[in-house]
Design a protein around this nucleic acid. Structure first.
Lengths: 140, 140
DNA sequence: CTACATCCTCTAGCGACTAGAGGTGCAAGA
DNA sequence: TCTTGCACCTCTAGTCGCTAGAGGATGTAG
């Protein structure tokens, strides 16, 4: 088998080199074998695992959630109820966040539209920030 | 004038006590006068400033952006072009983030819907994570 | 053999707080 | 007056998920 360097693993998985080392350091990725000269030598499975992690991170899962998902993946006989629960929780978070951002968007639009491009004392941006009572949303 | 303690200031502005001290430490809020016993004594203007900061933070502005907005507020003769630019930049960020989260939402929904609630080896949650090729969005 | 890219470990830094230790100030009840 | 107990003080260190940099070793191409 040809040796996969950390740089190769990084390129193939889309995870940066220092981040690969970081994932190893926190135990998300098993420590790989080393070459004569102490350089890491990865297996193809490590690249899949890194890609899995990367994808999950892109979806906004926290490291601890990913750790759980990975242990589930490692043991395919387990019930997928936990995986389902984690994904559902994340979905709810994302929906919340979208709602919240929509409210922010509306408020920012009011600010930007209301800006007369004159001096600060007539500026709606500053004004709205100074007085929360002027906006329609109250919790985020 | 009655003295406003840090606790009072926190309650009235909605900023937590340690956070008020933090804002002072990074120069976002001027260091207030102290009582005989070295306790901070705030002015009503400080509370407005804290409320301004809090509202801006809720809108997702970074501390450095808020610092700029505050200097603009402090000098009302300035043009509000900078304030406008900051708000516009933030609006674009928010719109980006919403689009990105919508894509995530769609992907998470596919995962959750596809979960057969059986064993992990048939679980769509794990499967989708393991193989990015299965999903329709490619950049976030 | 010599460049030069890539690798190694280690420590420190980022943003925006938050938590905790260890101590002081202050107002109200006994 | 004393004491209880909360609120305040400073300082350091921790959070999350990396990222940057120092200072050195290894590996490969010409």
């Amino acid at each position: 088998m040809k040796k996969i360097t950390i740089g190769e693993a990084a390129r193939q998985s889309g995870v940066k080199v220092p981040t690969v080392r970081y994932y190893e350091s926190i135990g998300l990725l098993a420590a790989p074998n080393r070459s004569e000269g102490n350089q890491r030598s990865f297996e193809p499975a490590d690249i899949s695992r890194l890609a899995f992690i990367r994808h999950a991170r892109e979806l906004g899962f926290e490291i601890e959630a990913i750790r759980t998902l990975l242990t589930l993946q490692d043991d395919p006989n387990q019930s997928c109820a936990s995986a389902d629960a984690i994904a559902k929780a994340r979905l709810i978070e994302v929906e919340q966040r979208i709602r919240s951002l929509m409210a922010l968007k509306a408020e920012l639009e009011t600010m930007v539209e209301g800006c007369g491009h004159g001096r600060v004392d007539q500026c709606r941006v500053i004004e709205v920030l100074a007085d929360h009572g002027q906006c329609r949303h109250s919790q985020h």
